[in-house]
Design a protein around this nucleic acid. Structure first.
Lengths: 107, 107
DNA sequence: CAATATACCTCGCCTGTCAAGGTATATTAT
DNA sequence: ATAATATACCTTGACAGGCGAGGTATATTG
């Protein structure tokens, strides 16, 4: 595992929630967005992505539905819930604090 | 596991190396330093600490020796190596980049 | 003399990541 | 025509770091 992956570990769920704040989306799209946003520096691996979806759904932070594509491959859409939004904002706050903490600890 | 632990995951080794930059130290002391530095927000768990020491030693980033305490409990001291310093600086750079990336991904 | 502090350590579980594999449809290149 | 690539979904099993729970020994404080 690369160091970058290790640093990113644990942020996956919040990153996904962040992408659902403004509109519903689906796995493939979210992954593409992330790659684009990071100039292809970071690619969320599919297995990681889908296991995160399962956890988020289980926790009630997202709900899912199938798109009604008439052409092309089917898409499973994800929507953030109110709990999900709360979770996201809590996490973001925690991230701000953690950032300062790590900066302090790395001198 | 708390969210904080998950965010901190992977930084343990660098945090330890950081504490060894200026002087050698030992497990108990390093742990205390970390707690103090973070106003008791973050406590590196002992099991985590010692398994990190093993990894760091294995990797050649630290070397260890027993202190010559005449009173009190014995102390195992840790010293950072040149490789350890290189590793630390590389990690710190990576952290700066990762920080920006996560900020971007969390909008 | 019990409790707390200092100081070390190990075992085994838990959880998130991911390599490797799979399915199906649509488009583009040869 | 058909091979290759892109879109889109998914599961399994291994791996690694964190840590709860347990242990040892010495010194100090109430």
């Amino acid at each position: 595992m690369s160091i970058t992956s290790d640093i990113l570990r644990g942020h996956t769920e919040a990153i996904i929630l962040s992408h659902l704040l403004d509109q519903d989306s689906y796995g493939y799209q979210i992954n593409k967005d992330i790659m684009k946003k990071t100039n292809n520096t970071y690619e969320l691996k599919e297995a990681t992505l889908y296991s995160a979806f399962r956890r988020l759904e289980q926790a009630g932070y997202i709900r899912t539905y199938w798109g009604d594509e008439t052409v092309g491959a089917r898409r499973r859409y994800y929507a953030i819930t109110e709990d999900g939004r709360r979770m996201y904002h809590g996490y973001k706050k925690e991230w701000q604090e953690a950032k300062e903490m790590i900066d302090k600890l790395l001198k």
